[in-house]
Design a protein around this nucleic acid. Structure first.
Lengths: 337, 337
DNA sequence: GCTCGGTCATGCCGGTACGGCATGAAGGTG
DNA sequence: CACCTTCATGCCGTACCGGCATGACCGAGC
């Protein structure tokens, strides 16, 4: 079985019923075309065209080729375009692992954006522990990770960080808690001194643990650390009872059990959220996801942090949040769910 | 869009997951294969294979190509084979024109054989007048003609004759006719002297007319010629009434109206039946039909004429004939329908 | 009837692509 | 650490392909 070029040549001649015009259409000289068609006939062992000096018409075999040939060329074209779709990241699949902390806003927003911008890419997302994310990305079994407080110096050489979001931190407290009294719309970390602070064990994500503690230390506060499991809702029980407080990023205000408030810490403190990828795994689909993530970050102002400041008026605005970007952009201050 | 060779190469590597083995399978050297696959990737702009020195595995784009590629190759193969089928005459179409005289046995037998031997060839057969057959073949609007008593010297240069059958002539008479009396199993043409002989007008097929008259003349008979139309059955009326006799070939015994007999003339006289083709129109399908015709002729002894002699025993065997070759082969002598 | 224009085929030449051989680089194995 | 396996690269000869010039053929028009 031969190649497709000669089939294309033959089809041009058979359609035009004229070698000279077909040659022009193909942008080659007529003699070359003449020989290629002749060569095709030789290798097939069939006469495809009956030529006189003034007429060209296909034989029966030629008519069959003329009928079925275009479909073959289209099939080839379609295959080629399909493959190219992978090349430029229109198609593909990416696995994404993220911590619970990103599960309420950052990851969903990213997935929504991928659905809009790159519907051909299948993103299989799942919640994973911080250490698992890093290890899986390093091992190549996970394409992209989404983590907070990643410490570049603590990572394998071949994984790469892309800053996605700088997220203002806040405390989560019961609305009955003294810190929430008098309609306060922020909390000074100094006020956490001596309070019970609910955190994941340091081993889970040492960098994050240290950053939280540093925020307190900067204000001179030494909270008593209480360890929580990886189960978000159940872990809030001590907070809901007023026995403890916890500290999460701005996006953590979403999905809080009712009766809990998120109040930003003042002076403002930020935690960074990164995408983690492996340097070698620069598949088009992964690259596409990084581009979409960058765009999403810009659209939502995730790096400026402007939207996370208390409003200039200082009005206390308590309401329930959906995930709509417009809502989120308009909100600041304290939130009750 | 590129050619198929590289796709085949890629598929071999992707299936073997090993360049060296794939190269062996393709009967080329490994470096050549390595470069071709790389070239394919370059022209598609996609990485198709992830290579390490000890492992080769397809990327996502590669997997797509691996899934859909074989179907494309098969489609190409199928197309190629289809075209080849025309080349060797397994496929095609042939138009066949024949005179009424061939319509009872010769043409049907040939069509049956074509159905058996070359089922892929569509034979569009129709009854035509002698002159039309010759003209159409010469003009190229008819592929093959089937005629009796063709005179080579009266034909255009570019038409060709192939002898298909030598057919013993006989007279058709009413079973009440004096010539059929006393259980005669043949007729001496001399006995036709003075009788009314039903023939097509000489202009219809001059050669045939002359041959029939020559048979009579050789025996010293000068029958009175009565002209018949081209409609077979209606033309037999004068014969059925006993007013006239006619002369047809051995195969003409089939399909006689009841009450009519076919008796061979003695001494035996033969008319030749030819296939008519145009020299230029040597399409594989036509060639195939000629081969099948030659084989059919041999199987039925159409050229030896042995089966058309009265049997050695001289037994008069009157019966109705079907078209089964076995029956026909076993029959001789006189026939009544 | 002859020339003329159009069309396809052939001869020749140059460039490119392809395949083979030799060799290098990388990574797993004993 | 040496060795083997495997893929990549360099170099070279050949074959294919396309371009140009030209020839052969045929129909049209004068």
């Amino acid at each position: 079985m031969s190649e497709l070029r000669r089939l294309r040549y033959f089809l041009a001649v058979a359609e035009e019923r004229n070698f000279t015009r077909a040659a022009e259409r193909l942008h080659i000289a007529q003699p070359a075309l003449s020989r290629q068609v002749r060569e095709l006939e030789r290798e097939l062992g069939v006469e495809l065209l009956l030529r006189t000096t003034h007429k060209v018409e296909p034989t029966e075999a030629g008519r069959m080729l003329l009928e079925r040939g275009p479909a073959l060329l289209e099939a080839a074209d379609s295959l080629w375009h399909g493959v190219r779709a992978f090349a430029d990241g229109r198609m593909g699949s990416v696995s994404l692992g993220y911590g619970m902390s990103a599960g309420y806003e950052t990851a969903p927003q990213l997935l929504l954006a991928m659905g809009e911008e790159a519907p051909g890419i299948e993103v299989s997302a799942r919640v994973m522990a911080f250490a698992d994310i890093i290890d899986s990305v390093a091992a190549g079994t996970l394409d992209v990770g989404l983590v907070r407080s990643a410490q570049p110096e603590a990572l394998p050489d071949d994984v790469e960080l892309t800053l996605l979001r700088r997220e203002r931190q806040g405390v989560v407290i019961s609305s009955e808690h003294p810190l929430a009294a008098a309609g306060a719309d922020s909390v000074d970390p100094a006020a956490l001194d001596g309070l019970k602070l609910l955190l994941h064990p340091r081993t889970h994500n040492p960098g994050h643990y240290d950053e939280i503690m540093e925020i307190c230390a900067r204000a001179g506060a030494r909270p008593e650390v209480l360890y929580r499991g990886l189960d978000f809702d159940a872990s809030y029980t001590p907070v809901a009872s007023g026995a403890a407080v916890t500290m999460v990023g701005y996006s953590g205000r979403i999905g809080l059990p009712s009766g809990l408030l998120w109040l930003p810490v003042t002076p403002a403190a930020y935690i960074e959220v990164h995408l983690v990828t492996r340097r070698e795994n620069r598949s088009p689909a992964v690259a596409r996801l990084l581009r979409v993530a960058e765009q999403t970050s810009r659209q939502h102002g995730w790096l400026t942090g402007a939207l996370e400041e208390p409003s200039a008026t200082g009005v206390k605005d308590r309401r329930t949040l959906g995930l709509e970007a417009a809502d989120i952009g308009a909100i600041d201050g304290a939130y009750e769910v």
